[in-house]
Design a protein around this nucleic acid. Structure first.
Length: 138
DNA sequence: GCCAACGTTGGC
DNA sequence: GCCAACGTTGGC
């Protein structure tokens, strides 16, 4: 199982929307590196759900459908996956908190701020869940 | 709102 | 194939 972080603009698709909907298509990715990451996702992979601008991780979602053609992409080059809500963080984890932890300096979140779908290693995943005061259900 | 860091586009 | 001009993302 792989671990990821996905970004969304809350005015476009928010954690509140995600909670309400339960399962939603993750579409609109128009960056090749991000698309490559989407294609690498397998069912059961978990992702941090990150609000850009608010700059915080709200909770965890899970890949429930592997990549398929993004219906919103006319060029046919980009893909979407389906994400299911897993659970909210008890405490949201802000970008500031992540930046203060030296063990997380290597994260793409800090180094490649524009990448909207990015891998997270297990160790960083555990640290961030701990910061979120949350044990993620299996 | 500004702008740095990318990506993309199109003229050459 | 290079690169200037332009567009977009997202932190500040």
């Amino acid at each position: 199982m792989a671990l990821w972080l996905v970004k969304t603009e809350p005015s476009n698709w928010s954690w509140e929307n995600q909670i309400k909907k339960g399962i939603e298509m993750w579409d609109g990715v128009r960056n090749h590196q991000a698309a490559k990451n989407l294609k690498s996702m397998a069912c059961g992979d978990r992702c941090f759900f990150y609000h850009s601008h608010e700059k915080q991780i709200c909770g965890v979602v899970e890949v429930v459908k592997e990549y398929y053609m993004d219906p919103t992409d006319e060029t046919g080059k980009f893909v979407a996956v389906d994400m299911k809500t897993v659970q909210p963080f008890n405490k949201r984890v802000s970008l500031d908190m992540i930046k203060k932890n030296p063990s997380l300096f290597h994260l793409s979140l800090l180094k490649q701020s524009r990448l909207s779908v990015q891998p997270v290693d297990q160790k960083s995943w555990d640290i961030i869940c701990h910061m979120g005061d949350t044990v993620i259900n299996k």
